[in-house]
């Protein structure tokens, strides 16, 4: 096992970890504020990808500049967040905040089932491809390996921006502080006149507590590195890796990576 291999595995791991982070941070924020494990989060991811691909194809067929495919991806993310996330929160989740955690989880399971069909009916079953964002920026050669700039620089940079951006919003803006307050102590913040339903809506649209963000970042990196090291050294463990990491984390830090002690209520 040479140094080269370790370096390559780290680059791949970083890139994959950044992708995982972008999905996980939303899940984390929702869980942190709403205490709901959003089983349907994977569907948000898939629908986001479909919308981005559809917009990309639309741009290509309209003959517009391929550079527009980058803002199109941002537009896709906002569309999915506002329409799917917003609608879901306003019509459904808002009605179940008082219910048991278990039931809340099941509601998102039901949403997952429904969104599966929505995807199928809307986009059919054929794979969609837009590789303009990938090919436009070209490749960069590291140790004799071609990496696409998109994979090696853009995705990790976007992930970093999201990380820093969320931290900034949660610490320094009004809505962010309110979200933080709700995460820390829901009852107290409501007593102080915070309209929690608006906070929830915001959270759900942003796809997003605090503390959890760093946790999501570290966990995503662990999964990314674990998986790429597996591909390089023991390909058989590639598929098992994320679950093994999840299992180990739950074993040693059952409340999550960056958890604080919770008091028990009698």
């Amino acid at each position: 096992m040479s140094l080269d291999i370790i370096l390559l595995a780290m680059l791949d791991g970083l890139s994959y970890g950044a992708q995982v982070f972008l999905v996980a941070v939303g899940l984390s924020l929702i869980f942190g504020v709403l205490r709901i494990v959003n089983v349907a989060h994977g569907s948000f991811y898939a629908i986001g990808a479909y919308v981005a691909a559809s917009l990309g194809i639309w741009i290509a067929t309209a003959g517009w500049s391929p550079w527009l495919s980058y803002p199109a991806m941002l537009v896709a993310a906002i569309l999915v967040g506002v329409i799917v996330g917003g609608l879901l929160e306003a019509t459904l989740l808002r009605r179940i905040y008082g219910k048991e955690q278990v039931l809340q989880l099941l509601v998102t399971f039901a949403v997952f089932m429904i969104l599966e069909d929505v995807q199928k009916v809307t986009w059919g079953v054929k794979p969609y491809f837009v590789n303009t964002p990938l090919s436009l920026l070209g490749t960069v050669n590291v140790l004799g390996i071609n990496y696409s700039v998109y994979q090696l620089a853009v995705i990790p940079l976007v992930a970093l921006c999201v990380l820093l951006g969320l931290r900034f919003i949660l610490r320094y803006t009004r809505i962010g502080r309110i979200v933080t307050a709700v995460t820390e102590d829901r009852e107290a913040s409501m007593a102080m006149g915070v309209d929690s339903s608006r906070v929830y809506l915001f959270t759900f649209m942003a796809g997003a507590g605090l503390g959890q963000i760093e946790g999501a970042a570290v966990a995503a990196l662990m999964i990314g590195l674990g998986r790429s090291i597996a591909v390089y050294l023991a390909p058989e463990f590639d598929v098992l890796m994320p679950y093994l990491i999840m299992f180990v984390v739950l074993l040693f830090k059952p409340q999550g990576l960056f958890s604080t002690l919770q008091t028990r209520k009698v």
Binding site: L92, R95, I96, K99, L103, L106, V107, F109, A110, V111, F112, M113, I114, E116, D117, V118
Partner: peptide
Amino acid sequence: WQTILGVSLIAIIM
């Protein structure tokens, strides 16, 4: 069919 099951699950919970 998944939608039918999903909607009935939500209806029962609600």
